[in-house]
Design a binder for these strands. Sequence first.
DNA 1: ACAACGCGCATACATCACTC
DNA 2: GAGTGATGTATGCGCGTTGT
Length: 312
Amino acid sequence: MSNAMLEVRHLRLVRAIAEEGGATRAASRLHLTQSAVSHQLAELEGRLGVALFTRVRRQLVLTAAGERLVEAARTMLGDLARLERELHRAGTRKREVLRLVVECFTSYHWLPPIVARIADEHPHVEVRIVTEATREPVAALLRGQIELALVSSPVRDRELVSTPLFEDEWTVIMAPSHRLASRPHVTAKELGAETLFAHDAPRSDVERLRELIAAERATMPRVVLVPLTDALVELVAAGLGVAIVSRWAIAPWERRGEIVTRRFTREGLAERWSAVYRRDAEPRLPLARLTELLADATFAAPSRRKVSGGRR
DNA sequence: ACAACGCGCATACATCACTC
DNA sequence: GAGTGATGTATGCGCGTTGT
């Protein structure tokens, strides 16, 4: 079958006989019978045309050729074992997966470059975005469905650790030609006369807004729910209404001048984004590095700044 | 279907330790 | 020194697996 004279099994055989001091013990080490070992050895010596052992008394004693072969067998088998471990390690490490979710309905325009960087710097980690968990990132974390969540709402849970990423702003967006675009900020009263597009999400932006407007004793605008950020922004850009969203989520449209952002109320609505993971299952990926990349990616956009400090 | 292969079983043969 | 049992290697033969 094999036209090679010397095979790996022969290396193991000769080494085992030499180290065990006989064919019988070598056989038990190799999980063979003495007969099989003897056959194999005879066959090998026949193929090579040289005696590897001399049969002196009831013993198998290495010849010079045998010594040479055992020495080579040790280094080769050692190399093989090392290679196997290395390949196995590489094979299993490849399967390290970091499942990630972001608590907003953005088009994730900022994420691909970061994922590419991580893949480049940490080839053993595969970052996977789990969009299904967007609506309930904390629940998904606690259920072990994801390893990392990027959230803007505060997280208070004993089992979770939250690392601040950057400050953002909950901001009113509108078409550049919109009548409110000339104002430095938008008041609750002014908003009441508008059509407001909002995400169709359980973490209800609408509820938060309702509270804010009630506090100002203003009327609630007409709300139209939209499932996707892209659609929502396009509706706003077309001048059909306004929306209140996390500013970094709509950065590309703002940069292209398709929409403008205005502060809601004189003080504005600050929002802090954090990376959250389970206390008992910190992602194997260097989280600090991911945080750094995220902060850098968002830092480039206006009115956003890194949050200094570590975990809370 | 056939051939090659690797193995195990049974056994032959060799040597050693021990006893008488 | 002969006899005996334990221990070790060598080999003929047949079987199951595998590749063609």
